[in-house]
C-alpha cells in the first residue's frame, strides 16, 4: 500500500494530533472547572483552562505538522538519493 512521503510510524503520529487537540482542550476545561469549584470563582478558571488547553492543543498540532513536513522532505530526499 502506498504511504506517500511518510512512514507507517509517521502516519500514526499524525493521526494522533486530532485526538491530542481534543484531549488537551477537555483537560484544560476540567482543570479550570475543578479550580473554580475549589475557589468558588466560576467561570474564570474554566475560561482560563479552556484557553490554555486550546493553546496547548494548537501548539501540539502546529509543532507536529512542522515535524511531519520536515520528515516528509527528508524521506523524499532519501528516495531521490536512492534512485
Amino acid at each position: 500500500m502506498p504511504l506517500g512521503p511518510f512512514t507507517k510510524q509517521e502516519h500514526l503520529e499524525i493521526a494522533t494530533l486530532g485526538l491530542q487537540l481534543a484531549v488537551s482542550q477537555t483537560l484544560g476545561v476540567l482543570a479550570g472547572w475543578w479550580m473554580d469549584r475549589h475557589f468558588n470563582s466560576l467561570p474564570w478558571f474554566t475560561l482560563l483552562g479552556a484557553a490554555a488547553g486550546f493553546a496547548a492543543g494548537m501548539y501540539m498540532v502546529v509543532s507536529g505538522a512542522r515535524k511531519a513536513q520536515a520528515k516528509a522532505a527528508e524521506n523524499l530526499n532519501n528516495k531521490k538519493a536512492e534512485k
Binding site: T16, L19, A56
Partner: peptide
C-alpha cells in the same frame, strides 16, 4: 511548560484511545 504538557497529554491520549 507547553512541551511538558504535550508529553503528559500524549500519555493521556494513549489511555483514552
Amino acid at each position: 511548560p507547553l512541551e511538558v504538557i504535550s508529553l503528559i497529554i500524549k500519555i493521556c491520549v494513549l489511555a483514552l484511545r
